[in-house]
């Protein structure tokens, strides 16, 4: 992706303002502020335990922050329950895929569109779109999701999230545990999804690949945002290269 948007610009879709999230008494997020604009791929990179997934869980309503505000299209969603946030147009492919193992591939995709009217033509269109993006899912349509390979389950989790016809797609570690050939394919698809008009907030440990496809990036360190900027700049940043890209 080129760097057409240096910051979120005026069309802010998602805004996190000084978010503090806890797991019991553990202070996991210590004041996270970030934003995602229309049309962007924004990546959140950082080491294990930096709070990347917690940031997504704060956004999608599974783990409400204690302080700070989260706005989606200007509306405060900080304490909205998860199922209502989905209906507003934020859908997620979770870390570790979390497909429904004893449902077929088709049923999993259907669950992705749970809050939508299945009789409308848009549903069929979206199903076709997912099958075009992931032809493998079409081949495995009636197979139980639990019997798919890791890469196929990742595709299914992403396809299922797309079935919500989201205005913002949250992707949590889509490349985790996948063979290199699958990793490349997954990132190509992320770009393709974005090109078709869906903004993406991408959490990744694979910093190099993530910065390759992203417009902008945030680097997280133990509950803080350590660095932020256009993906191209982060990629050449010495600190990032040392810590996350494994260069000495």
């Amino acid at each position: 992706m080129s760097e057409q948007a240096a910051t979120g610009g005026s069309n802010l879709l998602l805004e996190l303002d000084d978010i503090h999230t806890y797991y019991g008494s553990i202070h996991a997020l210590k004041g996270i502020s970030l934003n995602v604009g229309e049309g962007e791929i924004v990546t959140l990179i950082g080491a294990n335990g930096a709070g990347k997934s917690t940031t997504l869980r704060s956004v999608n309503g599974l783990n409400h922050p204690r302080r700070g505000t989260i706005r989606f299209r200007g509306e405060d969603i900080t304490t909205k329950p998860a199922h209502e946030i989905v209906k507003m147009g934020v859908s997620q492919s979770p870390e570790g895929r979390h497909v429904f193992p004893r449902m077929s591939v088709h049923e999993n995709l259907e669950m992705g569109a749970y809050h939508r009217d299945k009789r409308k033509p848009e549903y069929k269109e979206d199903l076709e779109r997912v099958f075009t993006l992931f032809p493998r899912l079409k081949e495995r349509e009636s197979q139980k999701a639990g019997t798919l390979s890791g890469g196929e389950q990742q595709m299914l989790a992403m396809g299922r999230a797309l079935m919500a016809r989201p205005s913002l797609l949250l992707l949590d570690e889509p490349s985790m545990g996948l063979a290199p050939i699958f990793v490349e394919r997954i990132f190509e698809i992320v770009v393709e999804i974005n090109r078709q008009g869906t903004p993406v907030l991408l959490v990744e440990q694979n910093a190099l690949m993530a910065l390759d496809v992203a417009t902008r990036g945030y680097v997280m360190e133990t509950g803080h945002i350590a660095l932020e900027g256009p993906a191209g700049e982060l990629k050449t940043n010495e600190q990032v290269r040392k810590t996350y890209l494994g260069e000495d």
């Binding site: 999608n60 599974l62 199922h83 989905v86 979770p94 429904f100 193992p101 669950m111 992705g112 919500a164």
Partner: peptide, 17 residues
């Protein structure tokens, strides 16, 4: 069924658990 199989994922589908 979705809630029984994976509660968090069910919430992410827009299901009120």
């Amino acid at each position: 069924r979705a809630t029984a199989q994976d509660r968090d994922a069910a919430a992410m589908m827009g299901i009120s658990v």
